[in-house]
Design a protein around this nucleic acid. Structure first.
Length: 492
RNA sequence: GCUCCGGUGGUGUAGUCCGGCCAAUCAUUUCGGCCUUUCGAGCCGAAGACUCGGGUUCGAAUCCCGGCCGGAGCACCA
């Protein structure tokens, strides 16, 4: 009588309903541009469930609207998916499968469940809204077949193929939806070979069936589409997959829409699809956000129907837990001020060594040559304690003379050497870089503004893609290496 | 307007199906404190939620009705 025991949810995604053995799932993007974080939800959810239950993961590119197919997107989607660790077993492109859709369309006509409609769209809508069938609905199959076979000669807009549903369906949107229409537009892959294109609801349902998809995970904006597609399954006598609809993912401060991003790029407001202000996968990756952080995020949000608002703080928190252990530490000086330390005892000069990571000394050290000439960041110089004392980490304590000017090279005086002295003096403990061999570095911030400064010499061995922690500044990813290093800032 | 779907701390989640073990989980966030030669990490502590109103019931976050708020769809886009 009782609940079958509270099952301890192993933490993470909830179980998928109605699983019988292995599952077949698919991610089916429209190739309109690179993937954004909203796509990541669909991709990661599908990929995680396949990992859990075993089975097959399908990538299907849905390019049945030549007007919305971006030739570059086919490749960028694959790149983004690889970064997302979405390892698909099979890949299909719908524009390769046109003949299949034609075949099923014809079969549906023969079953008497589809008809060629030559009504004007506005006329049909009027009838439909009143639950009235249009005259074409009752045409004999032969007539429909004839019109179907001559469909290709029709002008765009003159005719469509409709699937019969229920003309009295309480949701007018469901009533006799369009399965095929004419589009006069070069297709990036098939050129002008075809003019008759399936509508998404038709090709999706046919493909999901043919490919043996067991569970369809899609956004709740497809709720009505799922309902429409069920009619097709019914007409053909196919088994209906399990439909799961998840809510919208809103990202604070980010315009998610691909079209907005595209406009912005074309107008030069963004530097490209990986501009740090965008919510694309590649922009996020460029900033040093790790795949694992997104995966954590998506599995935590799960497939529930209510909308979720994601904050950058949340992503940063997840990412930091990955980066904290992974990232080596370096000294970076933003807004540099050159400081000359007077009266420096000779034996304080030399190579100063510091762990690459304070919690993992076994990773080795970096070396900072110290000769009394350094760069410090302006903020530290300006706020150098009441007594004007600063401790340069692992080096010496210095004091600025009162009343020294805030411009150009600054003179400081050697004060003492030990940490205890610094503490006793209430000194700030700051990072520094040698004035001579440091490397010029620019950090591109999340708002695309650039902070320039110097990074310590040891950074010369960094490679593109490395993510490091710039001590007291934040985590950042190496975007370009060389004799001037460019970073993209991730977060504190 | 019509159709449908949601609503648990700032955010994200567990619990809702099968009412009691929920004076509500976990994470993050925020704020204290400790620690630390990073403004990072770690440790300790604290703050903070069942949208509202009725109803059913001994008992409601959980069931029913209504309101409010939010979202989606209403295309020859996907």
């Amino acid at each position: 009588m009782k609940k079958p025991e509270k099952k301890e949810e192993p933490k993470g995604l909830p179980d998928l309903p109605d699983v019988e053995g292995k599952v077949t799932l698919r991610f089916a993007p429209n190739p309109s541009g690179p993937l954004h974080i909203g796509h990541a939800r669909a991709a990661i959810l599908n990929s995680e469930y396949v990992k859990r239950y075993g089975g097959k993961l399908i990538l299907r590119i849905e390019d049945t609207d030549p007007r919305r197919a971006d030739p570059d997107a086919y490749q960028s989607i694959e790149e983004d998916l690889k970064w997302l660790d979405f390892n698909w077993d099979e890949e299909y492109v719908q524009s390769d499968r046109m003949e299949i859709y034609y075949k099923y369309a014809e079969e549906l006509i023969k079953l008497g469940q589809a008809y060629m409609c030559t009504c004007r769209g506005s006329d049909f809508k009027k009838l439909k809204d009143e639950s009235r069938a249009c005259p074409c609905r009752d045409q004999p199959v032969d007539k429909n077949l004839e019109l179907w076979r001559n469909f290709n000669k029709a002008e765009e807009g003159d005719a469509v193929l409709r699937v019969k549903t229920d003309i009295n369906h309480k949701n007018p949107a469901i009533r006799d939806w369009v399965a095929m229409r004419i589009v006069d537009e070069e297709h990036p892959r098939t050129g002008s070979k075809y003019r008759v294109y399936p509508m998404m609801n038709f090709s999706v349902a046919v493909d999901d069936h043919l490919m043996g998809v067991t569970h369809v995970l899609r956004g709740k904006d497809h709720l009505a589409n799922s309902e429409k597609q069920k009619y097709l399954y019914k007409h053909f006598g196919w088994k209906v997959p399990v439909f799961i609809h998840y809510g919208r993912l809103k990202m604070e401060d980010v315009a998610l829409s691909t079209s907005k991003a595209r406009t912005g790029i074309e107008e030069g407001r963004y530097t490209g699809w990986d501009d740090p202000r965008l919510g694309t996968i590649r922009a996020i990756a460029r900033r040093g956000i790790k795949q694992g952080a997104l995966q954590e995020l998506i599995t935590e949000i799960g497939p529930k129907m209510s909308d979720a608002t994601v904050s950058w703080k949340k992503i940063y928190g997840l990412n930091r837990s990955i980066l904290e252990d992974a990232s080596d530490r370096y000294f970076f000086i933003a807004k540099p001020v050159k400081v000359q330390i007077a009266n420096l005892p000779e034996d304080e000069e030399g190579i100063i060594e510091r762990h690459l990571h304070p919690n993992f000394p076994e990773r080795g050290n970096r070396e900072l040559p110290f000769n009394g000439k350094v760069y410090l960041t302006m903020d530290d110089v300006e706020r150098a304690g009441k007594k004007g004392i600063l401790r340069l980490m692992d080096a010496v304590n210095i004091r600025f003379k009162e009343g020294s000017c805030g411009c150009g090279e600054r003179i400081a005086v050697y004060q003492s050497s030990t940490l205890e002295d610094a503490r006793a003096a209430g000194a700030r403990i700051v990072q520094w870089v040698p004035a001579l061999k440091s490397i010029v570095a620019d950090v591109v911030m999340p708002d695309a503004k650039i902070v320039s400064g110097f990074i310590e010499p040891a950074a010369s061995k960094l490679e593109v893609g490395d993510v490091v922690q710039l001590e007291r500044f934040g985590f950042a990813r190496v975007d370009s290496a060389g004799n001037r290093i460019r970073f993209y800032f991730a977060h504190k």
